[in-house]
Design a protein around this nucleic acid. Structure first.
Lengths: 189, 189
DNA sequence: CCTCTCATGTAAGACGTTACATGATTCA
DNA sequence: TGAATCATGTAACGTCTTACATGAGAGG
């Protein structure tokens, strides 16, 4: 149920229509969240039915496409949002990552392939880290909370990279010398 | 779809029945995963229909309750598991944590309440960290991969705690002196 | 006798993702 | 003309959680 309230929260910054909300999330929180229209439009409808947001006149604003439906938070919506904000969250963070799920079982497979998969992860997260660092610079001015989450993302990312690299090293050490051939270049790092 | 393969993976260690699988996950991976019967039994059925596991005679083993249905991995299951293992995972880690979801919007609420919620998180994760550390000692002997995941869990946990504490400090500093009353004891840490 | 543990399973619903359908305008 | 962008939405599907139904034996 937090997605509904996240949308309600975003509307506290400014009135938006569905399409805009998706853009906003992708731009500002894209590295940690993802969202799709299949969720946004039904949630907006629900929020409206509950009287937490209200839709202004559908505006054929600029030019293209169907008219935008601008939503704004009602007083009731603000109130209920605060109540939600101040509740203790029910569940704690779970790391249910598709890579980690495989990783646990790598002992049943080939170590060299495992190292290959680890290398893929390293590349992907190095990439993501750069994006996150640049994103952080771009905001900076925003409020502490948004900034702190960005900071957390960066730290998590760095930590995971460190872990991946040290894991890789440990694995390489377990491979017998005589079977090392394609691997030797990277192993000498 | 990784849950199906995780179950298949667990059955590589030893033959198990559904109830046992849940116990096993809770004991060994409980801090990162959760699973329920609503998923286990249907998945076992599906795995059997696909010929990846086979069910031995339902054994009225010891005493209580209905007979256990012991499942074991078939050769086809082993083969398909390896194929899955060696695939690159589709998606990267997402931090979609209910606390963090709220946290982003704390700017719209009361700072003191925010600090209270942060304190709750600190307590919860300090607790979890102790569990993880003790769990890690208990295993130790197991294979590198399981150990490394345990290590990662501990590091993530520690990092998150550090982040929570530094965030708390930053927030306390923004509270004007004269409105500090209930808060002063903890703030002087 | 009542509750706990062992053991099976199903059904309803919440939540998420992917894909499709529609349609106007802008730009190459 | 055809693709991209803006903008709405729905339907089908997949996954996950919660709650219930059943039933035997053990222990207080």
């Amino acid at each position: 149920m937090s997605l509904k309230y996240s949308i309600l929260g975003l509307l506290h910054y400014e009135d938006m229509h569905g399409y805009r909300i998706k853009e906003h999330i992708e731009k500002n929180f894209g590295h940690m969240w993802s969202i799709n229209f299949g969720q946004i439009y039904p949630n907006l409808k629900k929020l409206e039915q509950e009287g937490l947001v209200s839709m202004g006149e559908a505006v054929q604003n600029g030019q293209k496409g169907p008219p935008k439906k601008l939503y704004s938070v009602t007083p009731k919506g603000k109130q209920e949002f605060l109540t939600w904000l101040e509740q203790s969250p029910e569940k704690s963070m779970l790391l249910r990552d598709p890579f980690l799920m495989r990783f646990v079982f790598f002992g049943f497979g080939d170590t060299k392939i495992a190292i290959g998969l680890i290398d893929e992860q390293i590349a992907a997260y190095e990439d993501q880290l750069h994006h996150r660092q640049q994103n952080k610079k771009r905001w900076q001015s925003k409020d502490i909370f948004v900034n702190q989450v960005a900071e957390l993302g960066i730290e998590m990312n760095s930590m995971f990279l460190t872990w991946l690299k040290s894991t890789r090293k440990k694995l390489v050490e377990t491979i017998p010398m005589d079977t090392m051939n394609e691997m030797d270049k990277e192993a000498s790092e």
